[in-house]
Amino acid sequence: MGIKVGISSCLLGENVRFDGGHKHLRLCTESLSRFFDFVPECPEVGIGMGIPRKPIRLVGDVASPQAVAVHDYRLNYTEKLTAFGQQKAHEHSDLCGYIFMKNSPSCGLFRVKVYQENGYPAAEAGRGLYADALKKAHPLMPMEESGRLNDPLLRENFISRVFAYYDWQQLVKSGLSHHKLINFHTRYKYTLMAHSPKDYGELGRMLADAGNHEVEAIAERYFAALMAVLSTIASRKTHTNVLMHIQGYLKKKLSSAEKQELADIIDRYRTAELPLIVPITLLKHHFNNHPDPYIAKQAYLQPYPDALSLRNTI
C-alpha cells in the first residue's frame, strides 16, 4: 500500500470541473500513483454543485474572502466550502500530503485572485477556501499546487517532504521515545544539512537535552522545526557541502584514481554540468563496495524511490 496523498479530483482526469472537463496531471497518474494512494476530492461537487455548473470566484477581503457565483453574487458558497474542508481534514487525518488545482477559488493554494468591487482582483493573492481549511487543520502537512509541480526543484522538494512526513508518522505510530527521536535526527542529518546547515545545528541543540523534557513535547517542537527546514529549497552549494562530507567516509577505502574521479564528479555537479543523480549514484556504488553503517542509516542517499527520477533534473 502506498502513502496516502490527497488530490483535487480533476488532476486525476475526472470530469468534475465547472465546464465538465478535467485538468489531468500525468505526473500523478503515470508516476506518483506507483507510490502514492491518491485520495481525490472535488469540494465543489462535494457540497452539491452540479457538473457542469456556473463558475465561482473569490470576492472581498483577501484575508477572509467570500466564494460566490460569478453571474450572481447572491449565490454564496463560503460556509459550505469551508465546512467541507474542515470535515475532510478530520476524515483524512492520515494523509501525508496534498496536491491542489492551481488558481481554483476552492482548491487554489497560492495566488488565487480575490476580486474587488471595481471588478479587478486585489494586488494581494488569496487562497481557495477548501485548501485554506485543510492548511489550517494540518499546517505541517506538505501541500503543493499542480502548476508548481512542473518546476523540478519544487517537485523534488514537495515529494521528499511527503516521504519525510510519512517517515515521521510511522515513527509516532511505533511509539515515541527519546532514543527513537535521536535516531531519527541522526538519520536525517545530511538531508537537513542539504536544506540548511545552520538549522541542522539548531535542531541538534534542541535535542541535546531532550531527556529533560517530556518526549511528546520535544517531539512536537522538533517536527514543526523539521518540516520548516525541509520546506527550504536545497541549493547546489549546500548539496555539494553534503556530498563532500559523505565523500570523507570513503577517503581510506578508495584508490587515488577513484577519489579523484569522485571529487571531479562532485565539482562538475557544483558547476551545474551534471545533475545531482550522478554524484549520488557514484557514492552509492562505492558504499555498496565499502559499506559504512553510519552512511547506511542516512535518508539523504535514498529519500524516495529511484524510479521517481527526481534527481535527474536538479
Results as ranks from 00 to 15, higher is better:
42 C>F: 11
289 N>K: 13
7 I>Y: 01
192 L>K: 10
8 S>R: 06
310 L>F: 04
48 G>H: 06
215 V>C: 03
183 N>F: 13
1 M>A: 12
143 M>L: 15
138 H>I: 03
236 R>K: 12
181 L>V: 00
136 K>L: 14
257 A>L: 05
211 G>I: 04
26 R>G: 06
242 V>G: 01
81 L>P: 01
132 D>F: 02
110 F>H: 04
255 S>C: 01
41 E>S: 07
38 F>G: 12
38 F>N: 12
98 Y>A: 13
267 D>E: 14
152 P>T: 07
106 S>I: 04
159 I>Q: 10
46 G>M: 04
253 K>S: 11
129 L>I: 11
65 P>K: 08
237 K>C: 01
255 S>G: 05
168 W>P: 00
33 S>C: 11
259 K>P: 00
182 I>K: 13
126 G>N: 02
87 Q>T: 15
19 D>S: 14
182 I>S: 13
309 S>P: 01
183 N>H: 15
176 L>F: 02
196 S>Y: 03
12 L>D: 14
256 S>V: 05
107 C>P: 01
36 F>Q: 15
146 S>H: 14
275 P>T: 04
110 F>I: 08
246 I>M: 14
10 C>M: 12
262 L>M: 03
308 L>D: 04
244 M>C: 09
236 R>L: 06
176 L>D: 08
123 A>H: 09
171 L>K: 02
311 R>Y: 07
84 F>V: 10
207 L>Q: 00
295 I>K: 11
307 A>Q: 10
130 Y>P: 11
